[in-house]
């Protein structure tokens, strides 16, 4: 593999890894607070791309307004989802909550099939993002460079919210000890809604950029990225935001590199690209079940 091709793949991997990281943060924050796999997170992500799509094509809004609307609508949707599907089951056995999450995910997918149609739609291209940039022989579309930059910006903002604001402190408290936080006068419901809101916002930012980079929309497009990003969160250590980012990047790099390397292999491995995440998951669960950044916990009787 020549250096230019490697650099080119590196840019691709960085942008895919950033998208995974944005989605994985949503999973890890919800799991940290509620101990719940939000199966519908991938579908929330899918909805955000459709919102942006319809804002741009049906209402003919400029891209920045469309993206803002998509993000706001997705945040609303995420909080409504929590209220409808998860809050009534807060004190139920974990299996019930998980089944509810799976049902919610399927409901959103099928509603999307009904409302948006099963035929793939093409995300409109925005000239600023589809320019070809060339830096010393390495050429890539501008969106591949913009994605990691936006992601880093978003991560800084997220870090500020979590570490510096009052709401962030409340979130950390709730994830540490749900009951004690409640006794200290923290409104747990508000905190959980806020968490879902932030998770959905990140998913929407990721979703809009995903649409620009991979401009094909289908109602089932959230399923695979959703599963993979949950895996990224587990790999990094669930409940840990830095871990989710690291996991997302590992996944992105691994997938791109499998495809890149398989050209030089006697056996074509590129078909196994989607399997990489699952193999990684099983390896990490067996070797270090708490993930790369996770703290080990002992179950108390």
């Amino acid at each position: 593999m020549s250096l230019t091709i490697f650099m080119q793949q590196l840019v691709n991997a960085a942008s895919l890894g950033s998208l995974y990281a944005l989605l994985a943060i949503g999973y890890t924050m919800v799991y940290g607070i509620l101990r719940l796999i939000n199966f519908a997170h991938g579908d929330v992500f899918m909805l955000s791309t459709y919102f942006a799509f319809y804002a741009m094509t049906s209402f003919l809004l400029p891209w920045y307004i469309s993206f803002a609307i998509a993000i706001i609508l997705t945040i609303l949707f995420g909080t409504v989802l929590e209220r409808g599907a998860y809050r009534p089951l807060r004190n139920s056995p974990r299996i019930s909550i998980m089944i509810s999450a799976i049902a919610a995910s399927f409901l959103i997918q099928n509603l999307a099939v009904v409302f948006f149609g099963g035929i793939p739609k093409a995300f409109p291209s925005v000239p600023i993002f589809s320019k070809i940039i060339q830096i010393s022989g390495v050429s890539s579309s501008s969106i591949s460079v913009i994605i990691p930059i936006v992601t880093i910006l978003v991560l800084f903002i997220l870090g500020y919210i979590i570490n510096q604001t009052k709401m962030g402190m409340a979130m950390r408290a709730v994830s540490k000890d749900y009951e004690a936080a409640r006794l200290m006068g923290i409104n747990v419901n508000t905190v959980i809604s806020f968490t879902f809101g932030i998770g959905s916002a990140l998913a929407a930012i990721g979703g809009v950029m995903w649409g620009l980079k991979y401009p094909q929309l289908i109602p089932l497009m959230g399923l695979m990225p959703g599963l993979k990003c949950f895996i990224a969160a587990v790999v990094g250590g669930i409940g840990n935001i830095k871990g989710a980012v690291i996991g997302g990047f590992i996944l992105g790099f691994g997938e791109i590199m499998i495809v890149a390397v398989s050209v030089y292999m006697p056996y074509d491995l590129s078909g196994y690209r989607d399997a990489f995440a699952f193999v990684l998951l099983i390896a990490i669960l067996l070797l270090k079940p708490d993930g790369i950044m996770g703290k080990s916990s002992v179950e108390k009787v």
Partner: peptide, 27 residues
């Protein structure tokens, strides 16, 4: 390997294996 896990981890791991089986069969 998988049955050492619990609850949602088990669910995701078994789901992952089912996907791996499907991907292997596709290839």
């Amino acid at each position: 390997p998988v049955l050492r896990l619990k609850d949602d981890y088990l669910a995701i791991a078994t789901l992952g294996f089912a996907e791996i089986i499907r991907i292997v069969f596709t290839n």
